[in-house]
Design a protein around this nucleic acid. Sequence first.
DNA 1: GAGCACTGC
Length: 700
Amino acid sequence: MPSMVQNGPRNNPQTQKPHSNFPNKSHNPDSLARRERIERQRESLPIASVKERLVEGVNTHDIWIIVGESGNGKTTQLPQFLFSAGFCQDGKVIGITQPRRVAGVTVAKQVAEECGVELGRKVGYSIRFDDKTSSSTRIKYMTDGLLLREALLDPYLSRYSVIIVDEAHERSVHTDVLLGLLKSVQNVRSNFMKDLDNMDDKKSNNRAMKGTGTGTQCTSFLKQCHGRKFPPLKLIIMSASLDARVFSEYFGGARAIHIEGRQHQVDVLYTLHSEPGYLDATLVTIFQIHLEEAPGDILVFLTGQEEIESVERLVQEQLHKLPEANRKLLIVPMFSSLPSEQQMRVFMPASAGHRKVILATNIAETSVTIPGIKYVIDPGFVKARSYDPVKGMESLIIVPTSKAQALQRSGRAGREGPGKCFRLYPEREFEKLEDSTRPEIKRCNLSNVILQLKALGVDDIIRFDFMEKPSRAAIIKSLEHLFLLGALTDDCKLSEPIGHQMARLPLDPIYSKALILASQFNCLEEMLITVAMLSGESIFYAPREKKNEAIAAMKCFASPDGDHLTFVNVYREVYRLFDKRHIQIRGHVEQMGLRISSCGDDLVQFRRCLAASFFLNAALKQPEGTYRALASGQVVQIHPSSVIFQSKAECIIFNELVKTTNKYIHNITRIDYLWLTELAPHYLPCGVKNFWYEFSYLIY
DNA sequence: GAGCACTGC
């Protein structure tokens, strides 16, 4: 039972690393010395030797692919090279996107320091909830999701002369959608004059861009471009993957340049035979390193909290059997749901003579860089999320890593000096692994992606030029979902006003719709609370050792009607803890002109609104106590973390269906079945069939 | 009776 209310939202420990402050005036001899040191450091980076070639390349070609492992300085140096080469003339901006918030912040701080400027002036960053830019910002680091949002307001990305997409090999959904968008924006901007002629020729034709070779629709861009002139957009795709070919092919045979990294030698060792139980093998390897290898910390990649906690226990048990002198081993767990104070422990050095063992999930692959690692233990597995669009179900299952992932993990041993990586499987098994992890866009719910693309004016999703196309079934399912939510019209366009309102909110479409409905049900205040809680990390945390305290704390707030009402209760008591996201969403709905009122103690009204909002996720109790989801017919169970886990509610709505050891539903509220027939009559029982009839001609 | 990792004008 998750229960303790956490002390504020968790922060990634990297954001809390100390950084020096600005401004620094160069009259000071200390700062002069520092500037010289920074200059020397910059010049020693691998990328410095190819500076002229890079700048010349960007001048002559509109698109470049830069391949190179981390440590070569491409993220910090390239924007500075381009700035010096004049790419920010006329107030234009160089934008650099990152998949993660922390990276954007830390890199921007470093570059501001290198430039000797105050962060937020010439160099800045912009991430959700935190904008450190000004009108004078010329080098702007940001998350890729944020640039996508910017494109909704400025489809031509007209402020930017150059956009650098960093860490493209990670292939997050945002990166993939952004690449598709950038490709079409670049095309429109470089063919600007030609396209205007084109449009004059085809005034009656709504699909002016078809046939220009882009494969995308830019009609909406063109309309807004009338009478304005933009310089070509320079694009740079940066990737750490060894294979630049996929990017190069996607961008019409774009040139790629390889820049050496700063990686030290890592010896990779394999087992002779397959290990039946990789946790036992992990344990043996930890002690083998501890007792036989030179000093240096160990990083172990495990699949989840449960594994980490059980390995931690096993290591502690074994440790006590060793002679006193051999017990100098410090075990530190690391996973994202761990509170930040405990996450910080991985950055503290072990006391003298001790070796540190970090037991981590794949958070340590990319998100968190831990100093002092000399040994990596890689059992070769990862817990991965996948999505079944037909069943509307996510799965969280343990699968083998890809080759790229194994390389990424072993690289973690060679950041500060030569290291060793112990792969707990035979070398022949490595050869059988997939080359790279399947891009996220092929294994996630596409409703949000489609809503954003529609808002950007891309009407024909099936023919959108994705780098890797999601399955037709996944696209159709999400179109159907959006239609049932009222976001799409009968001819598959974004509806007015609901679809456009939904696209503006940075939320899962079903939550956006819930907010719109809630203003009609006079319970927007309560729905804002609920959606804010559902949209971020859980604010509940129940460590194993404080289980009873956690249960007691939860009981103070629990509502017999379910989790959503419990959220409202918690908020009303302790709202300050997570106000940031609440305030942001509140600002959005106020701007949209929705009426914010509270239903007060009339929580039946709120539950009716939940039923109207989440009717697609309704379930009925079966005789055995399990539930049957109405939309897909699947048999599901209430997850034990729900406050109504033990109740026998006849009819419920839920927010998430995730298959782990069982098909579990999360975030549940008890409703009355009759409300469904009253509030969602277009859906029950034949709404879906109507959809297929209406849309089949558009899809096939 | 159980929770990979990210992200959003």
